[in-house]
């Protein structure tokens, strides 16, 4: 089962077909059709906007993501497997991750520290810019797997914060 996510909403797509330069399909039960232009290999290279003007369309796929540029805008659409879990379930998660690759300049909290939401926990450097990484939640720092001077990849875990409510009980 493939789930399609776009702008934090889930979509169901059925009956995708291309006939006589008309691309059609059913999105969440609604049937849509779109005049397109294909190249000699059958690949769609442009699609009409609401005024009927053909607008170039290009796409690229990386793992579960497909990026589409159409009418000057880029959209990122997720085609993910499995049905368990909801989009945005990471809400309330105390993982502090690197937003991009870079170097750790300063750790402003250590394990056991009580921290507040939006408090700066880590100072990173990327592309010669210093970036402050803030706590996503109120809580207690339970771990910090990195050290000052480390080079880290994007998305790597920098610090773990356990939610404050566990402390109140």
């Amino acid at each position: 089962m493939t789930r399609i996510l776009w702008n934090e909403q889930e979509f169901e797509l059925k009956n995708l077909k291309l006939e006589n330069d008309i691309l059609s399909g059913t999105v969440n039960g609604e049937t849509i059709s779109l005049p397109v232009v294909t190249d000699k290999t059958g690949r769609i290279i442009s699609a009409a906007n609401s005024d009927g003007l053909p607008m170039p369309v290009l796409a690229a796929t990386k793992r579960e993501y497909t990026f589409v540029q159409w009418k000057g805008k880029v959209e990122k659409i997720t085609f993910s497997r499995g049905r368990e879990g909801n989009a945005g379930e990471t809400e309330g998660d105390g993982s502090v991750t690197a937003p991009m690759p870079g170097k750790i300049l300063e750790l402003m909290a250590k394990a056991g520290d009580i921290v507040e939401k939006d408090q700066v926990l880590v100072l990173m450097e990327s592309m010669k810019l210093q970036v402050e990484i803030r706590s996503p939640i109120d809580g207690i720092v339970s771990g910090c797997p990195v050290s000052v001077g480390d080079m880290v990849d994007g998305d790597s875990l920098l610090m773990q914060v356990d939610a404050a409510k566990q402390q109140q009980q």
């Binding site: 796929t61 589409v68 659409i77």
Partner: peptide, 28 residues
């Protein structure tokens, strides 16, 4: 929603769309 049709059809590695109704495979 038009963008979803385009994304789904261009996501296919060959970029081609089937004649008739199809559904996505387990890799999306």
């Amino acid at each position: 929603p038009e963008i979803l049709l385009l994304a789904a059809s261009l996501r296919n590695p060959t970029g081609k769309v089937a004649q008739g109704s199809v559904s996505v495979d387990e890799n999306g």
